[in-house]
């Protein structure tokens, strides 16, 4: 009897809590299918009376949402691919290759993790200005192309690669880069998938740096565009919800498909989502 009650309480509170957690996202989707003005009523409607795609259409037709979507997608993809390569190379070298001052260098990098990124942002902006990279994709990409955390994650994983494998490849006459490419990379695959996920989502969701660097509306990423639109269209709840759906949905889908790798990665090293 006591056991039944306990089970009821635990499961019941979890269901209630899950409902509360999911509600804002579910409601966002629901309102995004409403007619203009429908959500500005009391009591607030839960479901659209006659679901419509009007909001999405006007986002694409009048608000250039397709362009922002493409900006975000191209930036996140290229940063992910580039940083994956550079971080994997460095992480592998820190784990397995000999060079002088390696340990000290690695410790310095780790210590720098306590410096918040915002500290670097003001001079970084000035650097971009003098390099003529303000308002360019390259300028947004550069600070994300290598990350201390990414190097750390790869290194921890690469430490477990047996030295014999690397030596065997060398004896077979493979050069260092061949060894890295055809022996190491396949072995690092699980951690690279995780790191790719983190980087893609982190870049997609990033707000402050593209907000600072992108001065032309046509170069905005989705979050920057959405923030700007939400200031101009305070009253257009339905359209703003559609914009929020478009911004959130891609990362949410990627997460749902690959959540095992994502959560394993968090348990391994921990990173701010």
């Amino acid at each position: 009897m006591k056991h039944r009650l306990n089970s009821w309480l635990v499961n019941g509170s979890l269901w209630l809590f899950a409902l509360l957690t999911a509600f804002p996202l579910v409601w966002m989707v629901s309102v995004s299918f409403m007619q203009t003005g429908e959500a500005g009523a009391y009591p607030p409607p839960l479901f659209p009376q006659s679901p419509t795609l009007t909001q999405y259409e006007s986002l694409f037709e009048r608000m250039e949402m397709g362009r922002y979507f493409l900006n975000s997608f191209l930036l996140a993809t290229s940063i992910t691919l580039l940083s994956l390569l550079l971080n994997a190379m460095a992480g592998y070298a820190f784990a397995k290759l000999p060079f002088s001052g390696k340990e000290r260098l690695f410790k310095t990098l780790l210590a720098a993790l306590v410096i918040p990124a915002q500290v670097a942002m003001l001079p970084l902006f000035l650097m971009m200005k003098y390099l003529g990279l303000v308002n360019t994709y390259l300028g947004v990409m550069i600070p994300g192309m290598a990350s201390i955390f990414g190097i750390f994650l790869v290194r921890q994983y690469a430490l477990s690669v047996p030295n014999e494998l690397i030596e065997a490849a060398r004896i077979d006459g493979a050069g260092e880069f061949r060894t890295f490419w055809s022996v190491i990379i396949p072995l690092l695959r699980p951690i690279l998938v995780t790191l790719a996920l983190f980087t893609f989502m982190g870049t997609w969701n990033d707000f402050m740096w593209p907000l600072i660097l992108m001065t032309d509306a046509q170069n905005y990423t989705l979050p920057v565009a959405l923030a700007a639109l939400s200031r101009e269209h305070v009253q257009d709840n339905e359209m703003m919800m559609a914009g929020a759906v478009m911004t959130v949905l891609p990362v949410l889908i990627v997460f749902l498909v690959l959540q095992k790798q994502y959560i394993k990665g968090i348990m391994m090293g921990g990173v701010k989502g």
């Binding site: 809590f17 899950a18 957690t21 999911a22 509600f23 804002p24 996202l25 409601w27 966002m28 309102v31 959500a39 500005g40 009523a41 009391y42 607030p44 989502m201 997609w204 969701n205 707000f207 989705l222 979050p223 920057v224 959405l226 923030a227 939400s230 709840n237 703003m240 919800m241 914009g243 929020a244 759906v245 911004t247 959130v248 990362v251 949410l252 990627v254 997460f255 749902l256 959540q259 994502y262 959560i263 989502g273």
Partner: peptide, 29 residues
Amino acid sequence: RTVFFAPVVTTIVAVAVVWRYLYHTKYGF
């Protein structure tokens, strides 16, 4: 676990827009 984790991966700007509406004095839920 999936439901509780989902908000973590969402874009902060987007969910801030959603919550601003949830908090609306007149029409907010």
